[in-house]
């Protein structure tokens, strides 16, 4: 067991080192940091001085090691664009993204699970087929298309919900939340639906497939024979047996959602990390890009590793198979 955990952690660390290496390469070789940081009148001596101060005259490997050491301590340098500490910038934006992603995850479970159960129980009926077809729409329409359609209907035409921004936020310590104000809650509705649309479909399809499997099993047949009410069979016995993989998938997809949130954030001008990243891309603000890449990959890899380890704890058979 210990061997498995250590191997899995080493693997994750390896991946992160490679990601950090890519981020470092970008940081080091796309545009000369010195040229981007000094002003026009700087003399060659000034440039050399800055180069030495930034450690850019050191050997390649030394620079990489220092980049990793700094990154682990959360130091990604100074943003080229607004001369602020990159990690502070990202930390300011992080709550907005996390709230959006969690809202979308909860939404996808709250909508996806019932839909999956309905399509499984009423397999072959017209509304179930219609929902199945609807799920093809869900995987086919990109989130920005759904976002635009939502804005077109609910903001432009009906005027019910705001189309951009986060509304009023409340500061709790270093965390800023929009969930405590009326305008904040109204602002999160459309972005959360747009971000969740793909996930809802995934949850629905997975629940449906799992339910169809469970409904064929002997214990469900036995429960039926015993005369247990259908609703109890479906929701208490069958659904419970499907929820494990669904919850796992939703947890693992939080990483993907954080990455995809950058699209939703761009459409809704949601002030999260993704919007920060896209703005950094337009301004070639390399430190911000590198930091975002490392951070999102870290969350992604950490979640995957965590799920793998938890699974191995629960199911000993997996330890040898994947170790």
């Amino acid at each position: 067991m210990l061997v498995f955990v250590v191997k899995r952690l080493a693997n994750a660390a390896m991946v992160m080192l490679v990601v950090a290496f890519i981020a470092f390469l970008i940081f080091r070789f796309i545009g000369d940091p010195v040229n981007l940081m000094v002003n026009e009148q700087a003399t060659q001596a000034d440039r050399d001085e800055l180069r030495t101060r930034l450690g850019l005259d050191q050997p390649f490997a030394v620079q990489y090691i220092r980049f990793v050491t700094n990154a682990v301590q959360g130091d990604f340098g100074i943003s080229y664009r607004n001369q602020q500490d990159v990690m502070t910038l990202i930390a300011e934006r992080f709550p907005a993204t996390l709230e959006l992603v969690l809202a979308a995850s909860i939404l996808s479970l709250a909508i996806g699970v019932p839909l999956g159960v309905i399509t499984a129980i009423h397999r072959g009926r017209w509304f179930s087929e219609a929902l199945q077809f609807g799920s093809i729409l869900g995987v086919s329409l990109p989130s920005f298309v759904i976002a635009i359609l939502l804005i077109l209907v609910f903001s432009v035409t009906l005027g019910w919900l705001p189309a951009f921004g986060r509304g009023e936020t409340v500061q709790i310590g270093w965390w800023s939340t929009g969930l405590l104000t009326e305008s904040g809650r109204r602002a999160i509705v459309l972005p959360a639906i747009a971000l969740a649309s793909y996930e809802i479909t995934l949850v629905m399809r997975l629940v449906r497939a799992e339910m169809l499997e469970v409904l064929r099993s002997d214990f469900v047949k036995f429960a039926r024979a015993r005369g247990v009410p259908r609703r109890v069979i479906h929701f208490r016995h069958a659904l419970r047996n499907c929820l494990m993989p669904v919850v796992t998938m939703t947890a693992m997809n939080v990483g993907t959602l954080i990455a995809f949130a950058l699209v939703t954030e761009t459409v809704f001008q949601w002030p999260g990390m993704g919007l920060l990243f896209i703005q950094a891309v337009t301004f070639a603000d390399i430190p911000v890009m590198a930091a975002y890449l490392c951070l999102v990959s870290f969350i992604f890899v950490a979640l995957n590793t965590l799920v793998d380890i938890v699974y191995a704890v629960i199911d000993p058979r997996l330890r040898d198979a994947t170790a």
């Binding site: 991946v15 970008i26 990455a259 999102v296 992604f300 890899v301």
Partner: peptide, 19 residues
């Protein structure tokens, strides 16, 4: 391949394209 898949595809593509 594992490393490539451990970064979300959309992020890989945005990076390549913007760089």
């Amino acid at each position: 391949g594992d490393v490539l898949l451990s970064i979300p595809a959309i992020l890989v593509a945005i990076l390549v394209s913007s760089l």
